[in-house]
Structures are given as C-alpha cells and as structure tokens.
C-alpha cells in the first residue's frame, strides 16, 4: 500500500506517494519526475545515483523512499543558480572535459559538491578518496579530478566559501 512521504527536494516541499519497497532513487525519478539522478548498478557500487541527503552524500538506490520522510534532498537539478547559468562545478567539468557520455556525471558532481562543502581545499588524494564510490567507464578520472581541483581553486579565489 502506498504511503505519502514528505521531503524537501532542492528547496521545494514535495509529497510523493510510494510503496515501502520503492527506493529514494526510483521515487525521485518516477514519482518526483527528476531524472537527472541516474540509475546505474542499483546496488551501491557505481555512485551514479548520488544525492545529498540532510547534508551527506548517499546512494539514493540504497535508501528506502519512506525513510526520507522529513529529509532535505539535493539533486543535480537543484544545483544551477538559474536556468541559463551552470553551477561552477558544472562549468569546470565542461572546461576540463570531465564528461564523455555523461551518465556518471550527475553523481560525480553531487559527490564533488558534498566534498567541497565539507573540505574547501582538498588535495588530489582527498578528491580521489571522496570519489572512490563513483565509477566512470569512459573518460577516465584525470579530467574529473582536474575539474574538481579547478572548482576548489576558483571558489577560494572568489572567497565564497
């Protein structure tokens, strides 16, 4: 039987009707119509479904939607400050060629955002450690790491952190 689950998604109060066996990932993509969060492996190995839940990055495929009652969820759709302006991380991923097919990109960008929120000046090792749960099968990781480092540098210069 479906239950109504209330959560804040990208700053907006949402109420989604879900069965207990619905994952947060499926609820966001289907009932929530937010398909930016990707479904890769669906068992917590690939990180494509990474969203930020109450300030912490999690695999949305390993959270039951009913467990998100009262939670604050951030997804890739909520990242852009406005429709025609990408988030700095998105900008840097474009500049550095940090995406090829792009399927893993929303998860990687959400994980990178969570990292920079917590640690504005990460070393390359810290970036690699944070992104260990995000798999990219086409572009390789060097450009992704470059993009995250460039974002951190620019944020530091702008003094917005």
């Amino acid at each position: 039987m479906n239950r109504l689950v209330s959560m804040t998604v990208n700053g907006e109060a949402r109420e989604l009707a879900v069965a207990p066996n619905r994952t947060l990932l499926d609820a966001l993509r289907n009932e929530g119509s937010l398909t930016g969060t990707k479904k890769g492996c669906d068992v917590g190995d690939c990180g494509a479904c990474t969203v930020i839940m109450d300030g912490r990055p999690v695999n949305a495929c390993l959270v039951l939607a009913i467990e998100a009652e009262g939670a604050t969820i951030e997804t890739i759709e909520g990242l852009q400050p406005s429709y025609d302006q990408p988030h700095l991380l998105q900008q840097k991923f474009m500049e550095h060629g940090g995406a090829q097919c792009g399927f893993c990109t929303p998860g990687i960008i959400m994980m990178a955002k969570a990292l920079l929120d917590e640690n504005p000046d990460p070393s390359e090792d810290e970036i690699r450690f944070a992104l260990a749960g995000n798999i990219c099968r086409c572009t390789g990781y060097t450009k992704i790491i470059d993009a995250v480092r460039a974002t951190a540098e620019e944020l530091r210069k702008a003094g917005t952190l």
Binding site: G44, T50, V58, L62, V63, A130, G133, N134
Partner: peptide
C-alpha cells in the same frame, strides 16, 4: 569499507 556514500548510511 565501501564508499563515502555507503559509509554515510
């Protein structure tokens, strides 16, 4: 153990 995402849950 696993990834940061897994360890957060």
């Amino acid at each position: 153990l696993g990834s940061v995402q897994v360890r957060n849950r």
